[in-house]
């Protein structure tokens, strides 16, 4: 984004790529999946940035790379002014106190053999030992903070509902008092009514603790509700960046437009133009030349196949990777 915004950013991602080699052994010709390809964006302090895209767009890989759970192939990630990718193992562990992740699957993200107390205690004691009494007080406070009871401490994760488990996941993430949280599809597995509760909890916590959140989702309605800014990804590339209400109200990129038209409107009979994308996501091994979206884009022309369209500022604070002005 703009230079002013970049200097104030907590997280700056610069030309990040992650390519996974396909197959193993000799003679396979070094084919790669371009899960994330030349992605740049920034996340301002105390902002909630939504990262949207369909399955396979690389949004989860971006989230994991920001926490260095996945090592990128190339590019830079700056966290709070420091180069995240240059850190050695010991320093990385220290920085990890400041960044956390909330997972999509509330079932497999907890060790089934540990109680809630042990799960959160692990977060509290990961960096420094803590006396048992203090630990229990802190765990009780954390559980209360996320809307659970201190008595829940002695139970196992399987004794909770999906929404409650997600609250435990949030409590675990908050235990290290992070500045930055990656919420990876953290409500996708929940019922709609429970989704709203968890989203509101996240919003409350963000305001209260001044958190910066990267909210990864495929549901634009959820992102619109929660986020300040939106980054739209397709096939490992960024299609559009902009303030949430603007992107959702007036999408600049044809892909954002198509995504938006898929959001159900809670108004019977509302007249809307539905853009049905034909076909599937192309294989990330053989990405289309030029614009990666052109194979499914209703406006695609010959020019779209020749060059990769750069992300350009189409309006103040709005960036779109489409060669057409619309």
């Amino acid at each position: 984004m703009s230079a002013a915004a970049a200097s104030d950013a907590l997280v700056a991602v610069d030309r990040l790529s992650k390519h996974f080699p396909v197959g193993r052994g000799w003679g396979r010709g070094g084919r790669v999946v371009r899960a994330v390809d030349d992605v740049s964006f920034t996340i301002g302090r105390r902002r909630i940035v939504g990262l949207v895209g369909e399955s396979g767009s690389g949004k989860t890989t971006v989230g994991r790379t920001l926490l260095r759970l996945v090592e990128p192939t190339s590019g830079r990630v700056t966290f709070d002014g420091g180069d995240l990718l240059a850190l050695d193992a010991a320093r990385l562990r220290a920085v990890r106190r400041q960044m956390q992740i909330i997972f999509q699957d509330p079932y497999s993200s907890f060790d089934p053999k540990l109680t809630v107390e042990a799960i959160i205690a692990e977060a509290l004691t990961a960096h420094a030992p803590m006396p048992r009494d203090e630990r229990r007080t802190r765990i009780a406070a954390l559980l209360r903070r996320v809307g659970l009871q201190p008595e829940h401490m002695a139970r196992y994760p399987y004794e909770f509902s999906g929404g409650q488990r997600q609250r435990i996941g949030i409590a675990r993430a908050l235990a290290v008092e992070p500045k930055f949280i990656v919420a990876d599809e953290c409500v996708s597995a929940l019922d709609v009514s429970v989704q709203a509760q968890v989203l509101n909890l996240l919003l409350d916590l963000q305001e209260e603790l001044g958190l910066t959140i990267l909210f990864i989702a495929h549901d634009l309605a959820v992102v619109d509700y929660l986020c300040d800014d939106i980054v739209v990804m397709y096939l490992g590339k960024i299609m559009e960046i902009g303030p949430a209400e603007q992107v959702c109200g007036d999408p600049k990129h044809p892909y954002s437009e198509a995504l938006l038209s898929a959001v159900p409107v809670p108004e019977p009979g509302a007249a809307r133009r539905r853009i049905m994308l034909s076909g599937d996501l192309p294989s990330p091994i053989d990405v289309p030349s030029g614009c990666v979206f052109r194979t499914r884009c209703p406006y695609a022309g010959d020019a779209c196949a020749s060059d990769v369209p750069p992300l350009r500022e189409v309006a103040p604070g709005r960036f779109s990777a489409c060669i057409k002005d619309r």
Partner: peptide, 26 residues
């Protein structure tokens, strides 16, 4: 590859403790 192991890594739990605590137990 399970999320709870990744969660422990994200928390900064040392590898040897992840192995002793999460992997061996399961």
């Amino acid at each position: 590859e399970l999320p709870f192991v990744e969660a422990a890594r994200a928390l900064g739990v040392p590898t040897w403790r992840i192995i002793l605590r999460h992997v061996l137990r399961n």
